[in-house]
């Protein structure tokens, strides 16, 4: 799955709009990924101008 490094994200909203599965949302001005919906397609990783989304190794 992918997680957003909140230190680097400026909440521009770009990845929220581009995530194909609508897994990214704005909650209290923080941009968060719903792990249940994320398919690790890495679109957000590709588009974020600040490299804030990071791919985490699958557990197990």
């Amino acid at each position: 799955m992918v997680r957003i490094n909140t230190d680097e994200c400026v909440s521009c909203g770009g990845c929220i709009d581009l995530c194909p599965t609508v897994a990214i949302r704005m909650v209290d001005d923080r941009v968060v990924i719903d792990p249940e919906k994320c398919t690790t397609c890495k679109i957000c990783v590709q588009v974020c101008p600040l490299n804030a989304p990071r791919v985490l190794e699958e557990a197990g």
Partner: peptide
Amino acid sequence: DMHASAQY
């Protein structure tokens, strides 16, 4: 301040 944007 820094800003960014990403779109199709």
